[in-house]
Design a protein around this nucleic acid. Structure first.
Lengths: 192, 192
DNA sequence: GTCTATACCTTGATAGAC
DNA sequence: GTCTATCAAGGTATAGAC
């Protein structure tokens, strides 16, 4: 793998980290250049503007999500297992320095973002909600879980809980994320 | 009321607005001075530093919440009515230019905030969760509503949903906040 | 690809006149 | 209380050498 690819990838990963820890407006090229031992200008070589970097960060997350949910092996997994996997993403964020989820972070900054980034984060969020709604629908039909109301409403309620959960965990303590997840399972009639 | 008091109050209100729309790191003294037709230095007269302004914004919200929940007239209201009131706060935020809740906004910025502000937002969040848990507990005992599990877990799950809801509404459309609230009522066995 | 050097802007904050 | 004037620091971004 060329130097270009690794440096580019490092910037992308660190950028994603910084967005989820500090927020898009509160991280700077200095944070990246100091951490990676490169100079300001090197970052601009790979990503001409902060907007471009932000876009690629969102797209990278979107790609990972898309690849996972469309992987043949995963699509045939039982609904509770797929749900477990989704919840693990949030636990993973929590475990890595109390990251909040990308969608949550960029939504509070939403009105300060370039329109290209606004569109990209909307697209990601849409895909997540649709996937979750379809999963809950299947689960209810197959008797794996139960809930009242429309699956789309329940889906968005759950993702909203999870986004909020990582944020509240910063204020209340990480154990509360665990408690929220437990509660969501209870409310779905699922054994945790 | 002296000029001092009104200008101070205007700065405070606009500051709160800006935190909820743009985030603490993305609003500047220029946003305030231009909107109010005053100069940079005038703001510093009332609030020596941005940290002080941030602190007072949090405390103002905390005060409003504290006064409301401890008002004799409100404490004796039926649980569903008190719950309705709490949910209206979020609807009110949504109606005013898609504000997110103060706690949600400051939690994504949490690690970039001065420690004094971190402590203040933690204190507010703690009070909200405790109040909500106690309310849900009473409601369940009195048969007004129903849910599984511990009331504290359910309380934090609901506030997390609401915080996340205002954020997702920016991406998905405001009607989804309404749908989430409907779902929360359903999950509490409450008629909406 | 990465560097040095630098341009240009916005930020929060202060001093001192009125 | 509010102003003018000014500051140092930090932000994104670019030009051109290596």
């Amino acid at each position: 793998m060329s130097t270009r690819q690794t440096t580019r990838r490092k910037i992308l990963e660190l950028g994603e980290h910084l967005v989820q820890i500090r927020g898009f407006n509160a991280f700077s090229y200095n944070h990246i250049s100091q951490e990676l031992g490169i100079k300001n200008a090197a970052i601009h070589y790979h990503f001409p503007s902060k907007e471009q970097l932000g876009l690629k960060i969102i797209e990278a997350t979107h790609d990972r999500f898309h690849k996972w949910v469309n992987h043949p092996e995963h699509r045939i997994m039982p609904v509770p297992v797929q749900l477990d996997w989704f919840f693990k993403i949030y636990q993973y964020n929590l475990d890595r320095d109390n990251r909040v989820c990308l969608i949550g972070s960029l939504s509070t900054d939403y009105y300060t973002l370039p329109v290209t980034m606004q569109a990209a984060i909307r697209a990601l969020s849409n895909d997540v909600q649709k996937w979750m709604a379809q999963l809950l629908d299947s689960g209810r039909q197959q008797g794996d879980l139960d809930f009242k109301g429309r699956s789309m409403d329940k889906a968005i309620t759950i993702t909203a809980s999870l986004a909020g959960s990582l944020q509240l965990a910063r204020l209340l303590g990480n154990e509360w994320h665990h408690n929220i997840v437990k509660q969501i399972y209870l409310d779905l009639n699922l054994t945790y």
